[in-house]
Amino acid sequence: MSAGPKIVLDRVTKRFGERAILNGVDLSIEAGESLAIIGQSGSGKSVTLKCILGLIQPDAGSILVDGESVIGLRGKDQERVRAKFGMLFQGSALFDSLPVWRNVTFGLTQGRSRDTAHMKKVAEENLERVGLDGKILNLRPNELSGGMQKRVALARAIAPRPEIIFFDEPTTGLDPIRADVINDLIVSLVEDLGVTALTITHDMASARKIAHRVAMLYDGRIIWEGPQDRLYDSGNPYVDQFVQGRADGPIR
């Protein structure tokens, strides 16, 4: 593992037609750190994640993971780098046609033949880490509550033991109590597994709880970053307006 930051973005830009989504994003994430990116819908948060994962190629700038450039990687090199990542998708993105155990182990079995009994054991172990038990192994996701689906998706994200986990709006669609349960799980998993975490969220309670540091993306750039306990005392008018949910202010 590199002794430097886990992830570094340097002047990353991305346009779609005439619209500049990312306009020189600079960001550094240390190994073992949990960082949350906040910002308006359409501000480029998801595009940033996709650029890091190599799903979208930026127009300019550099992206390093463990000191290695990930822009333009292909084939086995791309697979090797992507194996470092786990992902909790917005809305969970489970496969309703597959039982829970196959959802949890999907990243481990895709394209490969694996022993069913062993995979069920792996699924059960990861479900236990997120507070679920083996009784749901053979259920379909649509037989579970929204909170349980989110936990199954979290179990899937950690099953390959990634070094980095991306959380895309992890509390979307959950009531405040279930959202706080997911926040607590994320905090404990990041600490227990020693992973680096990057979360994009509109949920300020979630950002304050799960992140060591918060960065705000606005107009294609990171305009503020600081420790989570400064989120409501940032001194930045854009951040203040966003976290307080006010219509009056510099953001239009």
Score class of each variant (00 low, 15 high):
Leu139His: 10
Leu139Ile: 01
Leu139Asn: 12
Leu139Gly: 04
Arg140Ala: 11
Arg140Ile: 07
Pro141Gly: 08
Pro141Ser: 10
Asn142Arg: 07
Glu143Lys: 05
Glu143Gln: 15
Glu143Cys: 06
Glu143Gly: 09
Leu144His: 01
Ser145Leu: 15
Gly146Leu: 02
Gly146Glu: 06
Gly147Tyr: 10
Gly147Ile: 13
Met148Gln: 14
Gln149Cys: 14
Gln149Lys: 15
Lys150Ala: 11
Arg151Lys: 12
Ala153Trp: 01
Leu154Asp: 05
Leu154Cys: 12
Ala155Thr: 10
Ala155His: 06
Ala157Ser: 15
Ile158Gln: 02
Ala159Tyr: 03
Ala159Trp: 04
Pro160Met: 12
Pro160Ser: 13
Pro160Cys: 13
Arg161Val: 09
Arg161Asp: 14
Pro162Cys: 14
Pro162Asp: 15
Pro162Ser: 14
Pro162Glu: 12
Glu163Tyr: 09
Ile164Arg: 05
Ile164Pro: 00
Ile164Ala: 05
Ile165Trp: 00
Phe166Glu: 07
Phe167His: 08
Phe167Glu: 02
Asp168Asn: 12
Asp168Phe: 02
Asp168Met: 08
Asp168Lys: 03
Glu169Asp: 11
Glu169Gly: 03
Pro170Met: 03
Pro170Lys: 01
Pro170His: 09
Thr171Leu: 05
Thr172Ala: 15
Thr172Cys: 04
Gly173Met: 09
Gly173Val: 13
Gly173Asp: 12
Gly173Trp: 04
Leu174Arg: 03
Asp175Ile: 14
Asp175His: 04
Asp175Gln: 02
Asp175Asn: 14
Pro176Asp: 06
Ile177Leu: 15
Ile177Met: 09
Arg178Trp: 08
Arg178Asn: 14
Ala179Gln: 10
Asp180Leu: 10
Val181Arg: 06
Val181Gln: 14
Asp184Thr: 06
Ile186Arg: 01
Val187Arg: 07
Val187Phe: 07
Ser188Asn: 10
Ser188Thr: 13
Ser188Ile: 05
Leu189Gln: 02
Leu189Ala: 11
Val190Leu: 05
Val190Ile: 13
Val190Tyr: 02
Val190Cys: 12
Asp192Gln: 05
Leu193Met: 14
Leu193Arg: 09
Gly194Ala: 07
Gly194Asp: 09
Val195Tyr: 00
Val195Arg: 00
Val195Ala: 00
Val195Met: 09
Thr196Phe: 02
Thr196Cys: 06
Thr196Val: 04
Thr196Trp: 03
